[in-house]
Amino acid sequence: MAASPPSPTPGSASPVRPARHGAFHTLTVAAVDRLTEDSVALTLAVPPELRSEYRHAPGQHLTLRRSPLDGSGKSEVRRTYSICSPAPAADGPGPSALRVGVRLVEGGEFSSFAHKEIAAGDALDVMVPAGRFVLDPAAAPAAAHYAAIVGGSGITPVLSIAATLLASRPDARFCLVRSDRSAASTMFLDEVADLKDRYPDRFQLVTVLSREEQEAGLPSGRLGEERLAALLPALLPVAEVTGWFLCGPYGLVTGAEQALAGLGVERTRVHEEIFHVEDTAPPAPVASAAATHGRVTARLDGRSGTWPVREGESLLDAVLRARADAPYACKGGVCGTCRAFLVTGEVRMDRNFALEETETEAGFVLACQSHPVTEEVEIDFDR
Protein backbone atom coordinates (compact mmCIF):
# COMPACT_ATOMS: atom_id res chain seq x y z
CA MET A 1 0.00 0.00 0.00
CA ALA A 2 1.25 3.49 -0.88
CA ALA A 3 1.50 6.15 1.78
CA SER A 4 1.12 9.87 2.22
CA PRO A 5 4.08 12.27 2.37
CA PRO A 6 6.01 12.70 5.64
CA SER A 7 5.18 16.43 5.67
CA PRO A 8 1.56 16.42 4.48
CA THR A 9 -1.00 19.17 4.10
CA PRO A 10 -2.98 20.54 7.07
CA GLY A 11 -5.20 17.88 8.53
CA SER A 12 -2.91 14.91 8.01
CA ALA A 13 -0.34 13.75 10.48
CA SER A 14 2.26 11.20 11.32
CA PRO A 15 0.66 8.12 12.88
CA VAL A 16 0.66 7.26 16.53
CA ARG A 17 3.92 5.34 16.89
CA PRO A 18 4.07 2.43 19.33
CA ALA A 19 7.10 1.87 21.52
CA ARG A 20 7.94 -1.30 19.56
CA HIS A 21 6.72 -0.96 16.01
CA GLY A 22 6.30 -4.29 14.27
CA ALA A 23 5.38 -6.10 17.51
CA PHE A 24 2.67 -8.78 17.42
CA HIS A 25 0.16 -9.60 20.16
CA THR A 26 -2.54 -12.26 20.27
CA LEU A 27 -6.06 -10.82 20.07
CA THR A 28 -9.40 -12.61 20.24
CA VAL A 29 -11.87 -12.46 17.36
CA ALA A 30 -15.04 -10.97 18.85
CA ALA A 31 -17.20 -11.21 15.72
CA VAL A 32 -17.15 -12.20 12.05
CA ASP A 33 -19.74 -10.29 10.00
CA ARG A 34 -20.60 -11.14 6.41
CA LEU A 35 -20.56 -7.92 4.32
CA THR A 36 -20.97 -9.32 0.82
CA GLU A 37 -20.60 -12.73 -0.80
CA ASP A 38 -16.85 -12.19 -1.02
CA SER A 39 -16.06 -10.00 2.00
CA VAL A 40 -16.25 -10.17 5.78
CA ALA A 41 -15.50 -7.82 8.66
CA LEU A 42 -13.44 -9.11 11.58
CA THR A 43 -13.86 -7.46 14.97
CA LEU A 44 -10.87 -7.95 17.26
CA ALA A 45 -11.16 -7.47 21.02
CA VAL A 46 -8.32 -5.49 22.61
CA PRO A 47 -7.69 -6.24 26.32
CA PRO A 48 -7.17 -3.24 28.64
CA GLU A 49 -3.44 -3.89 29.05
CA LEU A 50 -2.86 -3.60 25.27
CA ARG A 51 -5.13 -0.68 24.42
CA SER A 52 -2.35 1.90 24.51
CA GLU A 53 -0.36 -0.17 21.99
CA TYR A 54 -3.31 -0.39 19.61
CA ARG A 55 -4.11 3.31 19.71
CA HIS A 56 -4.27 4.33 16.05
CA ALA A 57 -4.75 7.26 13.75
CA PRO A 58 -7.70 7.11 11.31
CA GLY A 59 -6.46 5.41 8.14
CA GLN A 60 -3.84 3.11 9.66
CA HIS A 61 -3.71 -0.64 9.11
CA LEU A 62 -3.06 -3.91 10.94
CA THR A 63 -0.97 -6.86 9.82
CA LEU A 64 -2.52 -10.24 10.64
CA ARG A 65 -0.34 -13.30 10.89
CA ARG A 66 -1.19 -16.95 10.46
CA SER A 67 1.48 -19.35 11.66
CA PRO A 68 1.85 -22.64 9.77
CA LEU A 69 0.60 -25.88 11.21
CA ASP A 70 3.33 -27.85 12.94
CA GLY A 71 5.17 -30.01 10.44
CA SER A 72 3.56 -28.39 7.40
CA GLY A 73 6.86 -27.04 6.14
CA LYS A 74 5.16 -23.79 5.10
CA SER A 75 6.25 -20.32 6.14
CA GLU A 76 3.94 -18.01 8.05
CA VAL A 77 1.44 -15.89 6.12
CA ARG A 78 1.07 -12.15 6.77
CA ARG A 79 -1.55 -9.87 5.27
CA THR A 80 -2.30 -6.19 5.87
CA TYR A 81 -5.84 -4.88 6.35
CA SER A 82 -6.94 -1.31 7.06
CA ILE A 83 -8.80 -0.44 10.24
CA CYS A 84 -12.33 0.68 9.33
CA SER A 85 -13.52 1.57 12.83
CA PRO A 86 -13.18 5.18 14.05
CA ALA A 87 -9.99 6.15 15.86
CA PRO A 88 -10.17 6.65 19.64
CA ALA A 89 -10.14 10.14 21.12
CA ALA A 90 -6.66 11.54 21.61
CA ASP A 91 -7.24 12.16 25.31
CA GLY A 92 -9.01 8.88 26.05
CA PRO A 93 -8.01 5.24 26.44
CA GLY A 94 -7.04 3.15 23.44
CA PRO A 95 -9.65 1.15 21.54
CA SER A 96 -11.48 -1.77 23.15
CA ALA A 97 -12.05 -3.26 19.69
CA LEU A 98 -10.67 -2.96 16.17
CA ARG A 99 -12.51 -3.80 12.96
CA VAL A 100 -11.03 -4.69 9.57
CA GLY A 101 -12.58 -5.70 6.26
CA VAL A 102 -11.27 -8.71 4.35
CA ARG A 103 -12.08 -9.19 0.67
CA LEU A 104 -11.73 -12.72 -0.70
CA VAL A 105 -8.91 -12.87 -3.27
CA GLU A 106 -8.74 -15.73 -5.73
CA GLY A 107 -6.00 -18.07 -4.49
CA GLY A 108 -5.45 -15.84 -1.46
CA GLU A 109 -4.24 -17.99 1.41
CA PHE A 110 -5.14 -15.62 4.25
CA SER A 111 -8.39 -14.25 2.78
CA SER A 112 -9.62 -17.82 2.17
CA PHE A 113 -8.71 -18.67 5.77
CA ALA A 114 -10.62 -15.61 7.01
CA HIS A 115 -13.74 -16.48 5.02
CA LYS A 116 -13.87 -20.22 5.64
CA GLU A 117 -12.25 -20.85 9.01
CA ILE A 118 -12.02 -17.84 11.33
CA ALA A 119 -14.84 -17.72 13.88
CA ALA A 120 -15.69 -15.71 16.97
CA GLY A 121 -13.51 -16.81 19.87
CA ASP A 122 -10.47 -17.63 17.71
CA ALA A 123 -7.09 -16.10 18.48
CA LEU A 124 -5.11 -14.14 15.86
CA ASP A 125 -1.60 -12.68 15.90
CA VAL A 126 -1.99 -8.97 15.17
CA MET A 127 0.77 -6.41 14.63
CA VAL A 128 0.38 -3.00 16.27
CA PRO A 129 -1.07 -0.32 13.95
CA ALA A 130 1.13 1.17 11.24
CA GLY A 131 0.81 3.31 8.12
CA ARG A 132 0.96 6.94 7.04
CA PHE A 133 -2.26 7.20 5.00
CA VAL A 134 -3.83 9.17 7.84
CA LEU A 135 -5.69 12.30 8.82
CA ASP A 136 -5.49 14.04 12.19
CA PRO A 137 -8.82 15.87 12.79
CA ALA A 138 -7.26 18.02 15.51
CA ALA A 139 -4.78 19.45 12.98
CA ALA A 140 -7.41 20.20 10.33
CA PRO A 141 -7.98 23.90 9.59
CA ALA A 142 -11.29 25.59 10.34
CA ALA A 143 -14.12 24.58 8.00
CA ALA A 144 -11.91 21.93 6.41
CA HIS A 145 -13.23 20.16 3.33
CA TYR A 146 -11.78 16.74 2.48
CA ALA A 147 -12.52 14.37 -0.36
CA ALA A 148 -11.78 10.73 -1.14
CA ILE A 149 -11.89 8.63 -4.30
CA VAL A 150 -11.97 4.92 -3.52
CA GLY A 151 -12.48 1.66 -5.32
CA GLY A 152 -13.69 -1.65 -3.86
CA SER A 153 -12.08 -2.46 -0.52
CA GLY A 154 -10.34 0.92 -0.65
CA ILE A 155 -13.33 2.12 1.38
CA THR A 156 -11.94 0.58 4.58
CA PRO A 157 -9.35 3.20 5.70
CA VAL A 158 -11.45 6.06 4.32
CA LEU A 159 -14.44 4.91 6.38
CA SER A 160 -12.34 5.37 9.53
CA ILE A 161 -11.00 8.72 8.30
CA ALA A 162 -14.43 10.14 7.44
CA ALA A 163 -16.20 8.84 10.56
CA THR A 164 -13.48 10.14 12.89
CA LEU A 165 -13.29 13.56 11.22
CA LEU A 166 -17.05 14.18 11.09
CA ALA A 167 -17.58 13.08 14.71
CA SER A 168 -14.77 15.19 16.15
CA ARG A 169 -14.96 18.32 13.97
CA PRO A 170 -18.50 19.76 13.61
CA ASP A 171 -17.19 22.34 11.11
CA ALA A 172 -15.64 19.81 8.69
CA ARG A 173 -17.07 18.38 5.47
CA PHE A 174 -16.24 15.19 3.58
CA CYS A 175 -17.01 14.09 0.02
CA LEU A 176 -16.74 10.39 -0.81
CA VAL A 177 -16.64 9.19 -4.40
CA ARG A 178 -16.69 5.41 -4.45
CA SER A 179 -16.53 2.91 -7.28
CA ASP A 180 -17.70 -0.70 -7.03
CA ARG A 181 -18.62 -3.45 -9.48
CA SER A 182 -22.22 -3.77 -8.31
CA ALA A 183 -24.44 -2.95 -5.34
CA ALA A 184 -24.15 -6.54 -4.12
CA SER A 185 -20.34 -6.33 -4.04
CA THR A 186 -20.20 -3.00 -2.17
CA MET A 187 -18.55 -3.28 1.24
CA PHE A 188 -19.81 -1.35 4.29
CA LEU A 189 -23.03 -0.15 2.66
CA ASP A 190 -24.79 0.27 6.01
CA GLU A 191 -21.87 2.08 7.64
CA VAL A 192 -21.59 4.60 4.82
CA ALA A 193 -25.38 5.09 4.77
CA ASP A 194 -25.23 5.76 8.51
CA LEU A 195 -22.69 8.55 7.94
CA LYS A 196 -25.04 10.08 5.38
CA ASP A 197 -27.95 9.90 7.85
CA ARG A 198 -25.96 11.39 10.74
CA TYR A 199 -24.26 14.16 8.77
CA PRO A 200 -26.60 14.99 5.85
CA ASP A 201 -25.23 18.51 5.40
CA ARG A 202 -21.54 17.62 5.82
CA PHE A 203 -21.13 14.22 4.17
CA GLN A 204 -21.51 13.98 0.40
CA LEU A 205 -21.69 10.52 -1.17
CA VAL A 206 -21.35 9.72 -4.87
CA THR A 207 -21.50 6.07 -5.95
CA VAL A 208 -20.50 4.73 -9.36
CA LEU A 209 -21.07 1.08 -10.32
CA SER A 210 -18.85 -0.21 -13.10
CA ARG A 211 -20.94 -3.27 -14.08
CA GLU A 212 -24.49 -2.38 -13.05
CA GLU A 213 -26.88 0.43 -13.86
CA GLN A 214 -28.41 2.40 -11.00
CA GLU A 215 -32.01 3.62 -10.90
CA ALA A 216 -30.71 7.06 -9.98
CA GLY A 217 -27.35 8.76 -9.96
CA LEU A 218 -24.41 8.47 -12.30
CA PRO A 219 -24.35 6.06 -15.25
CA SER A 220 -22.32 2.89 -14.88
CA GLY A 221 -18.76 2.58 -16.08
CA ARG A 222 -15.17 2.72 -14.95
CA LEU A 223 -13.89 5.77 -13.04
CA GLY A 224 -10.84 6.70 -15.09
CA GLU A 225 -8.82 9.88 -15.50
CA GLU A 226 -11.00 11.43 -18.20
CA ARG A 227 -14.27 10.75 -16.40
CA LEU A 228 -12.98 12.02 -13.05
CA ALA A 229 -11.59 15.18 -14.65
CA ALA A 230 -15.12 16.01 -15.83
CA LEU A 231 -16.96 14.73 -12.76
CA LEU A 232 -15.04 16.27 -9.87
CA PRO A 233 -15.52 19.99 -10.73
CA ALA A 234 -19.27 19.33 -11.02
CA LEU A 235 -19.36 17.81 -7.52
CA LEU A 236 -17.31 20.19 -5.40
CA PRO A 237 -14.95 23.20 -5.53
CA VAL A 238 -11.79 21.26 -6.39
CA ALA A 239 -9.38 24.11 -5.61
CA GLU A 240 -10.83 24.57 -2.10
CA VAL A 241 -10.48 20.95 -0.97
CA THR A 242 -8.03 20.70 1.94
CA GLY A 243 -6.83 17.20 1.14
CA TRP A 244 -7.58 14.29 -1.19
CA PHE A 245 -7.40 10.60 -0.19
CA LEU A 246 -7.11 8.06 -3.01
CA CYS A 247 -7.38 4.39 -2.16
CA GLY A 248 -7.95 1.18 -4.09
CA PRO A 249 -6.52 -0.65 -7.09
CA TYR A 250 -3.46 0.75 -8.81
CA GLY A 251 -5.33 1.77 -11.97
CA LEU A 252 -7.98 3.78 -10.13
CA VAL A 253 -5.46 5.54 -7.89
CA THR A 254 -3.15 6.54 -10.73
CA GLY A 255 -6.09 7.67 -12.85
CA ALA A 256 -7.42 9.82 -10.01
CA GLU A 257 -3.95 11.25 -9.36
CA GLN A 258 -3.60 12.26 -13.02
CA ALA A 259 -7.10 13.77 -13.08
CA LEU A 260 -6.34 15.90 -10.00
CA ALA A 261 -3.01 17.00 -11.48
CA GLY A 262 -4.83 18.09 -14.63
CA LEU A 263 -7.25 20.09 -12.48
CA GLY A 264 -4.37 21.96 -10.86
CA VAL A 265 -4.38 20.24 -7.47
CA GLU A 266 -1.01 20.45 -5.68
CA ARG A 267 0.64 17.06 -5.25
CA THR A 268 1.14 17.73 -1.52
CA ARG A 269 -2.63 17.75 -1.08
CA VAL A 270 -3.00 14.24 -2.47
CA HIS A 271 -2.51 11.15 -0.28
CA GLU A 272 -2.52 7.64 -1.76
CA GLU A 273 -2.78 4.04 -0.67
CA ILE A 274 -2.72 1.24 -3.23
CA PHE A 275 -4.46 -2.01 -2.35
CA HIS A 276 -3.54 -4.13 -5.34
CA VAL A 277 -0.85 -4.04 -8.01
CA GLU A 278 -0.60 -6.56 -10.83
CA ASP A 279 2.68 -8.41 -10.34
CA THR A 280 4.68 -7.46 -13.43
CA ALA A 281 8.06 -7.40 -11.72
CA PRO A 282 10.65 -9.98 -12.81
CA PRO A 283 11.23 -12.83 -10.34
CA ALA A 284 13.75 -11.98 -7.67
CA PRO A 285 17.08 -13.78 -7.94
CA VAL A 286 17.52 -16.66 -5.53
CA ALA A 287 19.86 -15.86 -2.67
CA SER A 288 22.95 -18.01 -2.49
CA ALA A 289 24.09 -19.16 0.92
CA ALA A 290 27.72 -19.07 -0.23
CA ALA A 291 28.03 -15.80 -2.14
CA THR A 292 27.71 -12.49 -0.30
CA HIS A 293 27.13 -9.02 -1.61
CA GLY A 294 27.94 -6.42 1.03
CA ARG A 295 26.88 -6.01 4.63
CA VAL A 296 23.91 -4.30 6.20
CA THR A 297 23.83 -2.60 9.59
CA ALA A 298 20.29 -2.16 10.87
CA ARG A 299 18.86 -0.36 13.88
CA LEU A 300 15.56 -1.72 15.21
CA ASP A 301 13.90 -0.86 18.51
CA GLY A 302 17.09 0.75 19.78
CA ARG A 303 19.41 -2.20 19.01
CA SER A 304 21.83 -2.42 16.09
CA GLY A 305 23.57 -5.29 14.36
CA THR A 306 25.57 -5.98 11.21
CA TRP A 307 25.03 -8.97 8.93
CA PRO A 308 26.17 -10.14 5.46
CA VAL A 309 23.79 -9.75 2.53
CA ARG A 310 23.78 -12.81 0.29
CA GLU A 311 23.78 -12.48 -3.48
CA GLY A 312 20.26 -11.57 -4.66
CA GLU A 313 18.97 -11.10 -1.12
CA SER A 314 17.02 -8.03 0.00
CA LEU A 315 18.10 -6.01 3.02
CA LEU A 316 14.97 -7.16 4.84
CA ASP A 317 15.70 -10.85 4.32
CA ALA A 318 19.29 -10.33 5.48
CA VAL A 319 18.06 -8.69 8.67
CA LEU A 320 15.34 -11.30 9.22
CA ARG A 321 17.92 -14.08 9.41
CA ALA A 322 19.11 -12.54 12.69
CA ARG A 323 16.14 -10.39 13.77
CA ALA A 324 12.84 -12.20 13.32
CA ASP A 325 11.08 -9.12 14.72
CA ALA A 326 11.98 -6.92 11.73
CA PRO A 327 8.73 -5.30 10.50
CA TYR A 328 7.20 -6.49 7.23
CA ALA A 329 3.93 -7.68 5.75
CA CYS A 330 3.55 -7.99 1.97
CA LYS A 331 7.21 -8.14 0.82
CA GLY A 332 5.92 -6.78 -2.48
CA GLY A 333 6.70 -3.08 -2.21
CA VAL A 334 3.05 -2.17 -1.60
CA CYS A 335 2.25 -1.92 2.13
CA GLY A 336 5.23 0.11 3.38
CA THR A 337 5.53 -1.79 6.66
CA CYS A 338 9.28 -2.33 6.15
CA ARG A 339 10.03 1.37 5.55
CA ALA A 340 13.48 2.32 6.84
CA PHE A 341 15.80 5.32 6.69
CA LEU A 342 18.98 4.88 4.65
CA VAL A 343 21.70 6.21 6.97
CA THR A 344 24.74 5.43 4.82
CA GLY A 345 25.49 3.64 1.58
CA GLU A 346 23.49 3.20 -1.60
CA VAL A 347 20.74 0.74 -2.49
CA ARG A 348 18.64 -0.25 -5.49
CA MET A 349 14.90 -0.75 -5.07
CA ASP A 350 13.21 -3.26 -7.38
CA ARG A 351 9.79 -1.64 -7.07
CA ASN A 352 8.06 0.98 -4.95
CA PHE A 353 4.32 1.44 -4.60
CA ALA A 354 4.45 2.54 -0.96
CA LEU A 355 6.71 5.58 -0.63
CA GLU A 356 5.98 9.05 -1.94
CA GLU A 357 8.65 10.97 -3.83
CA THR A 358 9.11 13.24 -0.81
CA GLU A 359 9.92 10.19 1.32
CA THR A 360 12.48 8.71 -1.06
CA GLU A 361 14.08 12.15 -1.46
CA ALA A 362 14.30 12.36 2.34
CA GLY A 363 16.23 9.05 2.40
CA PHE A 364 13.59 6.41 3.11
CA VAL A 365 13.61 3.02 1.37
CA LEU A 366 11.60 -0.20 1.39
CA ALA A 367 13.82 -2.83 2.98
CA CYS A 368 11.97 -5.66 1.22
CA GLN A 369 12.82 -4.22 -2.20
CA SER A 370 16.30 -2.83 -1.49
CA HIS A 371 19.59 -4.44 -2.52
CA PRO A 372 23.01 -3.01 -1.63
CA VAL A 373 24.93 -1.15 -4.31
CA THR A 374 27.79 -0.21 -1.99
CA GLU A 375 29.73 -2.69 0.15
CA GLU A 376 28.40 -1.21 3.40
CA VAL A 377 24.79 -0.13 3.95
CA GLU A 378 23.18 1.15 7.14
CA ILE A 379 19.43 1.46 7.65
CA ASP A 380 17.31 2.60 10.58
CA PHE A 381 13.82 1.17 11.14
CA ASP A 382 13.31 3.49 14.14
CA ARG A 383 13.19 6.78 12.22
Rank of each mutant, 00 (worst) to 15 (best):
P233T: 05
L42M: 04
A23P: 02
G92R: 13
Q369H: 06
A234Q: 12
I155V: 06
L231H: 06
R178I: 03
G262A: 07
A23E: 09
V309Y: 13
H145K: 02
T28G: 03
L135M: 11
S314E: 10
R222L: 14
V16H: 09
R65T: 10
K116C: 08
V134T: 14
L42D: 04
A298W: 12
T207H: 11
Y199F: 12
A340L: 14
G302D: 11
C247S: 05
L218E: 02
S111H: 08
T63W: 00
L35I: 11
L195W: 00
L124I: 15
W244K: 10
A57G: 01
A172T: 15
A90I: 05
F275Y: 09
P219N: 07
V253P: 02
A256C: 06
E117R: 15
A2H: 09
P48S: 15
E213F: 05
P327M: 05
L320Q: 10
S12M: 09
P129T: 00
P58Q: 00
E53I: 09
H61G: 07
R351G: 10
A13P: 00
R267E: 09
G345M: 13
S168M: 13
S112L: 13
G108V: 06
A184Q: 03
R55M: 00
C330M: 04
A362K: 05
L64D: 02
H115M: 09
P88F: 05
L98M: 10
R339H: 14
L27H: 00
F275H: 13
V105H: 01
I379T: 04
F110I: 15
R65G: 05
E191F: 02
L50W: 03
R66V: 15
D325W: 02
V253Q: 04
F364K: 15
L44P: 04
R299I: 14
C330P: 14
C175Y: 06
I83H: 13
D122H: 03
S4H: 08
A41H: 05
S370D: 01
F341C: 03
Y328H: 11
T156M: 07
A97V: 11
D122R: 03
